[in-house]
Design a protein around this nucleic acid. Structure first.
Lengths: 145, 145
DNA sequence: CCTGGCGTTGACGTCGGCGTCAAGGTCTAC
DNA sequence: GTAGACCTTGACGCCGACGTCAACGCCAGG
């Protein structure tokens, strides 16, 4: 199987496959003419990579899974290193979700206040200045590093 | 006030301020010697920018707020354009949180299965092959575009 | 006068995961 | 023999929000 077919079968591109090889993530044998030659096993590895990527794993995080499969284990997550990545990712996800929910709460609060103030002005009443400035948040990291 | 002092007072860097000016987000007057000259009003604008950034807003998303303040309104969100950004951001946050929670569920499921299989192997029993491959997810976008 | 601490512009580097050329080689079908 | 569908390597582009360096100007204190 050559690179184009593998890419099509895995729903990705040849460029991505060459990139994975460059990272040493998905090495390829070579045919006599210099073309990359892949087998069915490589398709499994590639599917593992894509699935994890769809879950938001970075390529380096997929490496333990790929190596696990290459070592002949039944699943990419049959190895301790993969389980460790799962654990870390779950912790990251929890942190990220918590952060986003807190941010959502804050933004929703500001939005509600702003709309309220707009409506109060529309009525024509002046009222005392609400004086409620945005609280200085402690620099939420947002991106999961 | 010169750029260094403003940066310190706002808890950011001179490089960021020059970048904001380059974007036309935070224009600066110039002193006779070519130095950027800022006033207290600029500090307010800058604080608005930083607060929104801490909430995960991109710089372009902060622009309506800044322009609203520059127009003399009491708050950055006193203008319709800012409220519209709030609305879009809330929708984005909801989408993002939903996606992350779904991913969390999936990953937790895989993790649990992998640990279960490991323990079953540890007991020494072989059992029939579970044959449960990862379901092909419909390419979750993960990053908020 | 000189040092040091400010300021200036310009330009390149960073991170990840590729996209997109460019310039060529290989193989098959007609 | 030639078109065209594949393959190769190499190199630059992209996104956002700056970091970091270079090489220079300005100004106050000793």
């Amino acid at each position: 199987m050559r690179i184009g077919e593998l890419a099509r079968r895995a729903g990705t591109t040849t460029r991505a496959l060459r990139y994975y090889e460059q990272l040493g993530l998905l090495p390829a044998r070579r045919a006599g003419n210099g073309y990359r030659a892949y087998g069915e096993e490589d398709l499994r590895l590639l599917r593992q990579i894509r699935t994890l990527q769809d879950f938001g794993f970075g390529l380096e995080e997929t490496r333990p899974f790929v190596e696990c499969l290459q070592a002949g284990h039944p699943h990419g997550d049959s190895c301790p290193a993969s389980l460790e990545v799962y654990r870390r990712k779950l912790a990251e996800l929890d942190e990220c979700i918590d952060r986003l929910q807190e941010v959502r709460t804050q933004v929703a609060g500001q939005f509600a206040r702003a709309e309220r103030e707009r409506d109060e002005l529309a009525v024509g009443t002046v009222g005392e200045p609400p004086q409620c400035e945005w609280a200085a948040q402690p620099a939420v990291e947002w991106e999961e590093k």
